[in-house]
């Protein structure tokens, strides 16, 4: 695994660090922002979408790029326990100027998590307790890891992993009855399937028809699955746009 665990910020007691240039500063409710770090002038895979909930910021940084050379890295990250994943993160709270504690009445309970190995940042501010914002930020981080960290796939020998089979509709011809009921996007396990699906779509250069064949689905059925989740649809469409393909609608 190519990621480095940064032990100095391990555990739930991280030190504050200055905001990286990739981190947008203003904070509003119900927003997720994160910086994605890209190597040199290779900006092809990102297409900013002004209307979207997700804001992509690019910058050149010391942090290594998120690349498909980290075989299984992404999947490994997602299957980590909350504690393990948290141990790879720096967490800080906003508006932390001044002595804090008893000095302040602060309803500012926003939380920002920065995943050190990938540079991905997730934040949450909509809840009234910091504790809950931390949990929300971690859930968002998982979702962002699924969307942003790619595992490489060998198409010749490809068989869909079980977490992907579980999110497929029952009519898939390769989905055995042992997969159980279809997992929807409200289930926390959905992100694992979403990640595996994106791995495949990237491997087939954005062709929904090609991906559908690998999954025993019609092109229409796979499109509907992709369109059912906003962030999945957006990730697929941004990748397709970077390849000069039309967005799925």
């Amino acid at each position: 695994m190519a990621f480095h665990l940064v032990k100095s910020c391990v555990k739930v007691w991280p030190k504050t660090t200055a905001l990286s240039p990739a981190a947008p500063v203003p904070l509003r409710r119900f927003q997720i922002r994160f910086g994605i770090i890209i190597k040199g002038n290779d900006t092809t895979s990102i297409a900013p979408n002004r209307t979207s909930l997700f804001h992509y910021t690019t910058s050149v940084d010391k942090i290594p790029p998120i690349s498909s050379s980290n075989t299984d890295g992404g999947r490994e990250l997602l299957s980590m326990s909350d504690e393990k994943l948290m141990s790879q993160c720096e967490m800080d709270t906003y508006k932390s100027s001044g002595p804090g504690g008893q000095h302040r009445n602060k309803r500012e309970t926003a939380v920002r998590l920065k995943h050190i190995p990938t540079g991905i940042i997730a934040q949450a501010s909509e809840d009234r307790s910091q504790h809950k914002n931390r949990a929300s930020a971690l859930t968002r981080l998982r979702s962002l890891l699924a969307l942003k960290v790619r595992n490489s796939i060998d198409l010749e020998t490809y068989t869909p992993p079980p977490e992907l089979l579980q999110v497929l509709p029952p009519k898939s011809t390769i989905r055995g009855s042992d997969c159980g009921p279809q997992i929807g996007h409200n289930n926390p396990k959905f992100v694992l399937g979403m990640q595996a699906l994106l791995d495949l779509i990237f491997a087939v250069d954005g062709s929904v028809a090609d991906a559908a064949k690998k999954l025993g689905l019609s092109t229409g059925a796979l499109s509907r699955l992709i369109l059912s989740d906003d962030s999945l649809r957006q990730a697929v469409n941004e990748f397709r746009a970077s390849k000069g393909m039309k967005p799925l609608k």
Partner: peptide
Amino acid sequence: CEHWRDLVLSVEEGVLIPRPETEL
């Protein structure tokens, strides 16, 4: 009231409002 960790605690004048730092 104040939302603190996963609790919602009653507070009123005369009682310190629990702080987010103390959640730790």
